[in-house]
């Protein structure tokens, strides 16, 4: 039950959506976007592959297990809280590197809130994919049973 158009579309859209999700993640501090939306977009990219091609392919593309991605996200978020402590400020205080300019991106500000947002991104991505894969697994098994 594979649709050609969906499959081909997912092939093109997958990298595009991933890049978009990263852009949304990065620009979130000043413009609409952020880790939550970015994470959802990235999850949708994978789900699209899952529908267009197969859930297995989506899992392969992900490389890591969704639960590991969530753990990574939580660890990243906690890590982003530490620099504040090192500067004798409360836990989670935002600390920023001095701004610099890059071609294409313009003026760049890097700081712990962005790292924190990456953590959020990863947790959301992991959560959505974990739920999707779990439900898909249940549905697949039922389908097999109905066939047999």
């Amino acid at each position: 039950m594979k649709y050609f158009i969906l499959k081909e579309a997912s092939r093109v859209l997958f990298p595009a959506l991933l890049v978009l999700s990263l852009v949304v993640l990065y620009r979130g501090h000043n413009l609409p976007g952020g880790g939550f939306i970015g994470g959802l977009l990235a999850a949708i990219a994978f789900i699209l592959v899952g529908f267009g091609n197969s859930m297995k392919r989506a899992k392969d593309l992900l490389r890591l297990n969704p639960v590991q991605i969530m753990a990574l996200g939580l660890a990243t978020a906690v890590l982003s809280a530490v620099p504040g402590l090192l500067f004798n400020a409360p836990f989670l205080t935002g600390e920023w590197l001095p701004g610099f300019s890059l071609p294409l991106l313009g003026k760049v500000h890097l700081g712990t809130p962005l790292v924190f947002d990456i953590g959020v991104y990863l947790v959301v991505l992991g959560f959505v994919l974990h739920s999707t894969f779990s439900l898909a697994r249940l549905a697949d098994i039922q389908m097999e049973e109905e066939k047999s």
Binding site: H29, P32, L92, H109, P113, F116, V120
Partner: peptide, 21 residues
Amino acid sequence: EAKGKNVVNVILVDFRALDTM
């Protein structure tokens, strides 16, 4: 305070980051 123009995001990742965590 937080070098961000998107207030919603600044609240989420900076002002109320502990809540988000």
